[in-house]
């Protein structure tokens, strides 16, 4: 496995820390007068998602993490695993519950997802920024409301619960931002 010195740290570099693969977010060089130089590095742990700041002595080396992002289509779940396919090679990869996590509610068949592999195994599944979901259940709401004051909860086909404007009805397809979990619009037909 490759080792990286602090001089090679930049946003996007994947390194190992406390036995967990991490993504470097920021790297700032600090040096006290006539003293040891340090790098203050902001890091996201890829499994726990925790963001933390870590200080290294400048020139120190850290083991790189064998992490790779793949864009794969979501196929189906068998209850235990979620299956994804590379549309070019038809190769399939199965991610477990821990990797899918809360994002399970955004998985729509055939949507392109980013699967992050660490040492060849999926550790996170990231859905597209926007998904279209069918509403399976929501209160009828009041006619004539178009401003969407406050809205109402709507349950979608994937199990996600999204706040929608009062005029949106059961059976409709809506566009949702998966990063914030917020309703964007009715889906364009």
């Amino acid at each position: 496995m490759a080792f990286y010195s602090t001089n090679e740290f930049k946003a996007g570099l994947k390194i190992m820390l406390d036995g967990e693969p991490c993504n470097v977010l920021e790297n700032e060089y600090v040096k006290p007068g006539k003293g040891q130089a340090f790098n203050r590095v902001k890091i996201r742990k890829l499994i726990s998602g925790k963001v933390l700041e870590k200080t290294f002595k400048s020139g120190d080396t850290v083991e790189g993490a064998d992490v790779m992002d793949l864009s794969l289509s979501y196929l189906y779940t068998d209850g235990e695993f979620w299956h994804f396919m590379n549309n070019d090679t038809f190769e399939q990869i199965a991610a477990d519950k821990a990797a899918v996590g809360d994002n399970v509610k955004w998985l729509v068949e055939n949507d392109p997802c980013t699967i992050t592999l660490w040492n060849g195994s999926p550790i996170t599944v990231t859905p597209p920024n926007f998904v279209e979901l069918e509403i399976t259940e929501t209160d009828p709401g009041l006619k004539g409301d178009t401003a969407g004051t406050g809205g109402k909860p709507a349950t979608c086909s994937t199990g996600a619960v999204v706040r929608v404007p009062l005029f949106v009805q059961t059976g409709e397809v809506i566009k949702v931002d998966t990063r914030s979990g917020e309703y964007v619009s009715r889906a364009q037909k």
Partner: peptide, 15 residues
């Protein structure tokens, strides 16, 4: 090295 630690603490907690 004592000085490295002094410098780290100075950078982080004093400056």
């Amino acid at each position: 090295d004592r000085d490295v630690l002094l410098q780290l603490l100075f950078c982080d907690a004093v400056e």
